[in-house]
């Protein structure tokens, strides 16, 4: 009898949860959830979709200073390599996906636009001596996107102001006044990210984070992680002679090399596979 009563109680409980509740109870639960939703949205971070629109605008601005290199072979090569690396990252999918392009500039530089557009200069491609080194450069930029370093450089006050306009309602179109304010905030946000990517650079801790994540992506993909150290050493020599491009905006490669040397142990590299990859690298970058 006790068992039957227990079963009946369970049955009634399940029926309540599946919708056989009184309207008052449902109203009560809805109010609770709505309050929780509103509170969560009021302090929410920038969404993936919003990050995508900021990234597109930042890339459009970079293209105002750097022309796009029209080289189908190289473009396909870096996009294939970049996609393979991104799939080994902790954020294999972004709203708009990862896209890689080469900028027609001799300057040595690379930019990870929020959302997944990665722009790398021809000078940076030329800095790499083999596929593993080029993969190391791309992996480092993918890591900046994974950690949302670019989008996180938007001033908190801008986003707080944006949230006050956005509210929590489902709005398809903003009115002229709200739209004008949002465009102003959007402009400011692009400025913040652009300054970080192109003018000031990331902080040393963000570079360490990106280096260490790049090491993981390279290892998972099967590349030699010490290629990252090799490319940083070359960057150091380049910086000593030029003092432009990435050297202006990035911390001293010496510190990053030291940090990586503590984390990357010397490993045996399959020279046959490395030479296979170097062959296709040479063919793609020439």
């Amino acid at each position: 009898m006790m068992v039957q009563r227990g079963l009946l109680c369970s049955l009634l409980f399940l029926l309540m949860l599946t919708g056989c509740v009184t309207p008052d109870i449902r109203k009560g639960t809805d109010m609770l959830f709505t309050t929780v939703d509103a509170a969560a949205k009021a302090a929410r971070p920038i969404s993936e979709e919003e990050e995508y629109f900021v990234g597109r605008a930042v890339a459009a601005r970079i293209f105002s200073s750097y022309p796009l290199l029209d080289n189908k072979r190289l473009t396909t090569y870096i996009n294939t390599m970049g996609r393979a690396l991104a799939l080994h990252s902790q954020r294999p999918f972004t709203y708009g996906g990862y896209h890689f392009a080469v900028l027609n500039s001799a300057e040595v530089n690379a930019f990870a636009c929020p959302g997944g557009i990665i722009l790398i200069t021809r000078g940076m491609v030329d800095l790499a001596r083999n596929e593993d080194e080029l993969a190391a450069i791309l992996a480092h930029e993918i890591a900046h996107i994974n950690y949302r370093h670019g989008i996180n450089s938007i001033q908190q006050s801008r986003w707080t102001e944006a949230l006050s306009i956005i509210g929590t309602k489902a709005i398809k179109e903003y009115g002229p006044q709200d739209l004008s304010r949002l465009v102003h905030i959007f402009e400011g946000s692009i400025d913040d990210v652009f300054k970080t990517l192109v003018v000031n650079g990331y902080g040393i801790s963000q570079e360490y984070m990106a280096d260490e994540a790049a090491k993981v992506y390279l290892t998972r993909t099967g590349y030699d992680p010490s290629a990252l150290i090799a490319v940083l050493e070359r960057l150091e020599s380049y910086g000593a002679s030029s003092g432009t491009g990435i050297i202006k905006t990035h911390p001293d490669p010496k510190d990053r090399i030291e940090n990586l040397k503590k984390k990357i142990l010397p490993s045996q590299v399959d020279t046959t596979l490395l030479s296979l990859r170097t062959k296709r690298f040479t063919s793609a970058v020439q």
Partner: peptide
């Protein structure tokens, strides 16, 4: 779309205000 701030509408208004931005190249890269 509920509670979204930077939307296609905002991007469109920004593009109209800044025709110098090379969105055509961004579309190509995508």
């Amino acid at each position: 779309l509920a509670g979204k701030g930077f939307t296609p509408q905002v991007e469109k208004a920004y593009k109209n205000k800044h025709p110098e931005m090379k969105y055509s190249l961004v579309d190509r890269v995508e």
